[in-house]
Design a protein around this nucleic acid. Structure first.
Length: 424
RNA sequence: GGAGAAAUACUCAAGUGGUGAAGAGGCUCCCCUGCUAAGGGAGUAGGGCGCGAAAGUGUCGCGAGGGUUCAAAUCCCUCUUUCUCCGCCA
């Protein structure tokens, strides 16, 4: 969430940058400031009374010992106590409302982010590789997968429902190969590998800002406070929740493979075929905790990691800066990596790399001290996919298919495939 | 899942309603001594939040959240976690 002091000191700027996301939040910001005014007034009043209570309290035992009549003082204390209680109750309500509004207020996009309406306005910063020209009609990955009997969507639907599938034989093996390859690249780049819980509680989800605003995207376990994670970002970022890190530890780099579960509530009917949009998929994530002054530079370095993977796999891709209208609500800046997908005849998102500034750190309460005895400051958090598995698998099937229906395994994956060079 | 016990600072730990939450270890600094020691002294409760230009000051902090009371580490309720035993179990 945003710092209330930052909002107060930069009100106009905050309003403008939030409006650039496509929705005017001026009223919400004004309400936040009004509630904060009310909050401060209540604190001042209640604490003045408490100070008086404490002062009188200290004298009561002496007076009692001396055998003096303290019934007048007692009456005064009783009245004070009730006033304090009333003001505290009111304060609680105000803070609850203020906190909720702060939790649902999006992050302020940084100056580098272009203003735009949707993905059309994203800015391509670089691309690598050329979309392959086929001398025959290339097949979509769902057809390749079915023909080679390595993706079984009908049985996925039978067992679970739409947007589920089985991977089979070389398909399952390829998925596993991708996970291992990604993790090996990432750990080689200095990211510490974690295996995490795949369920998380509501406090954790509030920390990384899936809650309270995006609850409909999550699968919730009935009769419990557990949610299925939609990304490893959730457990990994919250790994350091409520901690004060030492300045020398930063930056901290982590990587984790997890399955990801997404309700895809707003996507009914879109991308129902194949592996592009599914309820459950494998992903390897990278997460960074950095000092505030380093986070923009660390974002550039972070994007380079999935780029390295795509280059090693030989998949053509491009990097775009998401415009204000297309980026996620919680980040200050977001790069998307888009891989060339012949069946769509366009680039399709395969990784999203973002700087969250102190937005998550403030919610999850993750701080650091520059040195012993220094004041604790919020860290900056960043994360990116490195990389999503099913979309990469789909891209491999489509980009490396042969006319006879077989698929070449990218060279770097051959060792992970037990020497298999061609899927047939 | 059942029964019992526990949670106070970096660690250990005292504290059953009343003025500043003991004490010890550790750590930091000083003194004495002089050579891996010993002794003496001082400091060592973090983190929010409020007021203040600042120095500072107020408030809240004894696992968490409520309650009783003029007043709660202390009494009551709910919850969490840890430990021990039992049960179940890959």
């Amino acid at each position: 969430m945003l710092d209330i002091r930052y909002i107060r000191e930069n009100t106009q700027y905050v309003k403008e940058r939030l409006a650039a996301r496509g929705k005017n939040l001026d009223e919400q910001i004004d309400k936040i400031i009004a509630l904060d005014d009310e909050r401060k007034a209540l604190i001042l009043s209640a604490e003045t009374k408490k100070a008086e209570q404490n002062k009188i309290n200290k004298s009561i035992p002496q007076l009692k010992k001396a055998g003096e009549d303290i019934s007048a003082i007692m009456a005064q204390m009783k009245a004070l106590s009730e006033q304090v209680k009333n003001e505290q109750a009111k304060l609680g309500e105000v803070e609850k409302e203020l906190n909720y509004l702060l939790l649902i207020t999006p992050n302020v996009p940084c100056d580098k982010v272009p203003v735009g309406k949707d993905a059309e306005d994203n800015v391509v910063v670089r691309s690598w590789g050329e979309p392959k020209q086929f001398e025959y009609e290339p097949k979509a990955h769902w057809d390749i997968g079915a023909d080679l009997d390595i993706i079984d969507q009908p049985r996925g639907v039978k067992v679970a429902g739409t947007r589920f599938n089985f991977l089979k034989g070389a398909g399952a093996k390829l998925e596993r190969a991708l996970i291992s390859f990604y993790l090996d690249v990432n750990t080689g780049e200095g990211f510490k590998e974690l295996m995490t819980p795949y369920l998380a509680n509501s406090k954790t989800l509030t920390g990384t800002a899936q809650l309270p605003k995006f609850a409909e995207d999550m699968f919730k376990i009935e009769n419990s406070d557990y949610y299925l994670i939609s990304t490893a970002e959730i457990p990994v970022t919250n790994y350091h929740a409520d901690e004060i890190l030492e300045g020398e530890q930063l930056p901290l780099y982590y990587t984790a493979y997890t399955p990801c579960f997404r309700a895809e509530a707003g996507a009914a009917g879109r991308d129902t075929r194949g592996l592009i949009r599914v309820h459950q998929f494998d992903k390897v994530e990278i997460v960074k905790f950095t000092k505030p002054e380093d986070s923009m530079e660390e974002l550039e370095k972070l994007v380079a990691v999935p780029e390295k993977i795509l280059q090693a796999l030989g998949l053509p891709y491009r990097v775009v800066i998401c415009c204000t209208g297309d980026m996620g609500g919680n980040q200050v800046m977001q790069y998307d990596l888009e891989v060339w997908m012949p069946s769509y005849n366009k680039y399709v998102e395969i990784s999203s790399c973002s700087n969250y500034w102190d937005y998550q750190a403030r919610r999850a309460n993750i701080k650091f001290k520059r040195e012993k005895g220094a004041k604790a400051e919020f860290v900056h958090t960043l994360n990116g996919s490195s990389l999503a598995c099913p979309r990469a698998l789909a891209a491999i099937l489509e980009n490396f298919q042969n006319e006879d229906g077989t698929v070449n395994v990218p060279e770097v994956l051959v060792p992970y495939m037990g020497g298999m060079k061609v899927i047939k």
